Amino acid sequence: MNSTSHRTGGPAGAMRAWFTEPFDYRWMADFLNSRPAGKLIRWVMACLTLNYGVLAMVSLFSADASRSPVAVAWKACLVVSVVAVSAAWITRPFPGRLGVVAFAVFADLGTASSLLINPLVDALLTCALFAMIGTFCTFCVSPRWLVAHLMFAVACTVVAAAATYSSGGVDTASVIFRTNVVLLAIAGVPLVSHLLITLLTDDARSSFLDPLTGLLNRRGLDAAIGDVWPRGREKDRCSAAVMIDIDRFKSVNDLYGHEEGDAVIRRVADRLRAHMGQYGVIGRTGGEEYVAVVSTSRLHIDALVHGVRRALRDPEDTVAVTVSVGAAIVLADSPAWAENTDIDLVTRATRVADSMMYEAKAAGGNRIATTEL
């Protein structure tokens, strides 16, 4: 969702934009897995999940609990399942789209099944467990999956409220009061929270992005490099700073106009993202200048750098352009790692890559110049 979609089209337009916005599951997983706090979050999720199993066992000792073979067997299955899922939260990285959606569905269905075998007097209280799932969905799934969860949770709560009322053990006012409190907790809070978080996140992320290409701007690049650069210290890996500049770009604007020039800049950005994006971060730091900071194996780094020109070339382009590329490569066993802090080293590598790019440009352009630090 672009930053203006929240402010145009009125409330209905804003809600529609929010609902249809794609959710970047990969970015979320990479972000959490690259930070120490991500491990803490996985431990918290493991503990909360394990608590479901504890509740299932405790409910067996309730005076009104069903002790039929089916109920006991199902609760045993729930306990085994939550132990396995808790172990996965601890031992595995934070999951991507399939994992987080599967967990939300598992938690929803497990909670709903508990309503069928727990005492009726506890039905509305059991529905409060949907609040924890809603909190997870607020941060970890798309708006569409959140709405699906909320519809399911609200439906279960309404059915539980109707069953409680039909039992005759609770007066009408009490049922309405309890149902409303539960609905506010399981639906109102997650929905408002997701809307607010989406708004804040979009505006925060847009401040790190180049509006023309969607690549990182200089500020975003500086913030993201710290997650990529240290990987080069690992065995059989290396890091590289790569500068890419479109040759004679002024003539493109002069001959074809600025609109076509913008199209060229976007096209180069898209192809750079496709070629190098999975190995690091890419930014646009000038009019026709791009920077990539990547980490990959020593065998692959040369192919990645020297494949830039081929990745950007397409005979069917209406405006054919060439690029000059400069790269500074830091091997895993390079003494530069010990001689500099990570920040100093990436700054040094970027400056060297910039110098190499200008060498390539001075030699006539459409060239690649590399060096090792």
Rank of each mutant, 00 (worst) to 15 (best):
A17G: 01
A161N: 02
V346I: 10
A349Q: 04
E316P: 00
G257S: 14
V101W: 15
G134E: 06
V82E: 00
L373N: 03
M1C: 02
K75E: 13
K361W: 14
R348S: 12
A332S: 15
L109T: 15
H306W: 14
R178A: 05
V83R: 03
R273D: 01
C140T: 09
H6L: 15
A303V: 14
F23Y: 04
V70S: 09
G96W: 12
M15D: 10
T341W: 02
V170A: 04
A162C: 08
L129R: 06
T135W: 14
T198M: 08
A303N: 11
D210H: 11
A12P: 05
M28T: 04
V308M: 08
Y358S: 10
P119T: 08
A269F: 05
V147Y: 02
L299P: 00
A73G: 09
D202H: 07
V58R: 03
F249K: 06
N217Q: 07
A65H: 09
G169C: 04
P93G: 07
L312H: 06
V82P: 00
M1L: 05
L124V: 03
A349W: 06
W145R: 05
D314C: 13
S174I: 07
S113Y: 02
S206V: 01
G287D: 07
T4H: 14
V308H: 04
W145N: 09
P22H: 09
P211K: 08
V182Q: 00
A155C: 09
V121E: 14
M357G: 06
R284G: 05
I301N: 04
V72S: 07
V352A: 03
A362M: 08
L50S: 06
F103E: 11
R267P: 04
S62T: 07
V252K: 10
L120N: 14
F61A: 08
R309G: 01
R16Y: 07
M356E: 15
D222R: 13
S5G: 03
R205A: 14
V44R: 00
A363D: 11
L195H: 03
S207D: 13
C77W: 11
D302A: 12
C156D: 15
A160S: 04
G99W: 15
T341P: 04
V325F: 11
A269N: 07
I368F: 08
L120M: 10
C47D: 05
I343K: 08
H306Y: 02
R16F: 06
K75S: 10
P143L: 02
H6E: 13
E289V: 03
S166C: 06
E234D: 15
R367G: 03
G110L: 11
G257F: 04
S174L: 12
T201L: 11
S324I: 12
D30R: 11
A37Y: 05
E288W: 09
A128S: 13
T341L: 01
G226P: 04
V192F: 10
A123M: 04
K75N: 08
F177D: 07
H194P: 00
D171F: 15
A88K: 09
C137G: 12
L312P: 05
T350K: 14
L200R: 15
K250D: 01
S142A: 08
I225D: 02
A87Q: 05
A131R: 07
